[in-house]
Simulated scan of single mutants.
Amino acid sequence: MNLESARRWLRGGLYTLAALQTFVSLWQYFLPRSFFDDFPTVKLDPPYNEHLLTDVGGLGLALAATLAIAAWLVDTRVALAALTGYLVYAATHFAYHVTHFADFSLGEALGVGTGLGLEVVLALLLLHTARLLLRAGRAMAGVDGPGRSDGERHAGEGFGD
């Protein structure tokens, strides 16, 4: 398999995984009762749902690993991907909680809303910073467009260069 074929295979595989995960995740997020009632095996879980909690914990660990790799590589493109994923999670988590405060005390609501809101704001600020660094690196390299297919890093694309 040549390099271009490998890239096409990787791209197709990533799109396939993203599509499958998007389908299940949208169903879970927007129609949680339907997912619980209609997805095979989920309704077989008991009311305390260890399966659900460990799956969510695993997803959180996956997101943490992605953010840590982005920090270790200090490449703006990787950081943009990791931060975009984190922002989707943080924003949907924040949106759920701020619309479900009925049983919270004022202090609990303020604590949860503020803490989760700060995560969204920090992710937005970091995403903006990564976009500025990527744009500056491309301007220095004289590159236009979303990226290259040659796999090379050029000056300014990694913010640890």
Rank of each mutant, 00 (worst) to 15 (best):
G147M: 09
F104L: 05
H97D: 09
G160D: 02
D161W: 09
V121M: 05
F94M: 05
T66C: 12
L125E: 04
R11A: 14
T76R: 15
T114N: 04
F23Y: 13
M140A: 15
F94V: 02
V56L: 15
N2T: 13
V24T: 13
F104C: 00
L116A: 01
A91D: 06
L106T: 13
A109T: 09
T76D: 13
T92D: 02
A90I: 06
R7N: 05
D75H: 14
W9V: 13
F104N: 03
F36R: 14
Y29C: 01
L10V: 11
F35M: 10
R135N: 06
P47H: 09
R77Y: 14
R148M: 10
D144H: 09
A81G: 14
W27V: 07
L116P: 01
S5A: 15
A64I: 05
A64Q: 03
G137T: 03
L63D: 03
T54K: 15
G107R: 12
M1G: 12
Q21M: 12
F35W: 11
V98F: 05
R11H: 13
G151H: 06
S149V: 04
A95R: 08
L83N: 00
R11L: 14
A65P: 02
P146A: 14
F39Q: 00
V121I: 15
A79R: 12
S25G: 11
F30P: 01
G58M: 10
R7S: 03
G160L: 03
A79E: 10
L52N: 08
T99M: 08
L127W: 11
Y89M: 08
G145T: 06
T66A: 15
D37A: 10
E119V: 14
A64P: 01
A62Q: 07
R7I: 09
A155D: 09
G160V: 07
V112H: 06
H51Q: 08
D55Q: 11
A136C: 00
G85F: 05
H128F: 13
R135H: 12
L124P: 00
A90H: 02
W27Y: 05
